[in-house]
Simulated scan of single mutants.
Amino acid sequence: MDHAEVLLVAGRAGVGKTTVGWEVSALLRGADVAHAVIDGDFMGQVHPAPPQDPDRARITEASLTAVWANFARHGYRRLVYTNTLSVLTETAGMFRRALGADVRIVRVLLTASDATARERLVRREIGSELERELTGSARKARLLDRHAPADTVRVATDARTVADIAREVVAATGWAGQDRPARPPA
Score class of each variant (00 low, 15 high):
141 A>F: 09
144 L>C: 04
101 A>D: 15
100 G>I: 00
117 A>E: 09
116 T>N: 03
110 L>R: 00
127 G>M: 12
102 D>I: 02
140 K>H: 14
141 A>T: 12
115 A>S: 14
132 R>H: 13
110 L>E: 03
119 E>I: 09
152 T>E: 05
114 D>Y: 05
129 E>L: 12
136 G>L: 10
119 E>S: 09
111 T>W: 00
119 E>D: 13
100 G>C: 01
126 I>E: 10
105 I>T: 06
114 D>R: 10
145 D>P: 09
104 R>H: 12
124 R>F: 06
128 S>C: 10
138 A>M: 11
129 E>I: 14
110 L>G: 05
151 D>R: 02
101 A>H: 11
102 D>W: 01
105 I>N: 05
102 D>V: 02
134 L>F: 07
132 R>L: 13
149 P>G: 03
106 V>W: 00
119 E>N: 10
99 L>Y: 13
143 L>I: 12
106 V>F: 05
117 A>C: 05
140 K>Q: 12
138 A>H: 08
121 L>T: 04
122 V>A: 05
115 A>E: 15
114 D>K: 07
114 D>P: 15
143 L>P: 11
102 D>L: 08
133 E>K: 15
135 T>V: 10
147 H>V: 12
150 A>P: 11
128 S>W: 12
117 A>I: 01
119 E>W: 08
116 T>M: 05
148 A>W: 01
134 L>A: 01
127 G>R: 15
101 A>W: 15
146 R>W: 15
115 A>G: 10
99 L>C: 01
130 L>V: 04
104 R>K: 07
102 D>F: 01
147 H>S: 15
127 G>L: 12
151 D>I: 03
130 L>E: 00
134 L>K: 08
121 L>R: 12
118 R>G: 09
148 A>F: 01
133 E>L: 11
132 R>D: 10
109 L>D: 09
122 V>F: 07
135 T>M: 07
125 E>I: 06
130 L>H: 07
145 D>Y: 11
140 K>V: 13
124 R>N: 06
146 R>N: 11
152 T>W: 05
111 T>A: 04
116 T>P: 00
113 S>V: 02
112 A>R: 04
140 K>E: 13
110 L>T: 02
145 D>M: 14
117 A>F: 02
108 V>S: 04
105 I>Q: 01
135 T>R: 13
99 L>H: 14
137 S>R: 03
131 E>I: 11
138 A>V: 11
139 R>G: 08
99 L>R: 07
140 K>I: 13
100 G>A: 01
120 R>F: 00
121 L>E: 14
133 E>A: 12
149 P>Q: 00
133 E>C: 14
101 A>Q: 14
154 R>T: 07
112 A>Y: 06
115 A>R: 12
108 V>I: 05
143 L>S: 13
129 E>K: 14
148 A>S: 03
145 D>Q: 14
154 R>W: 06
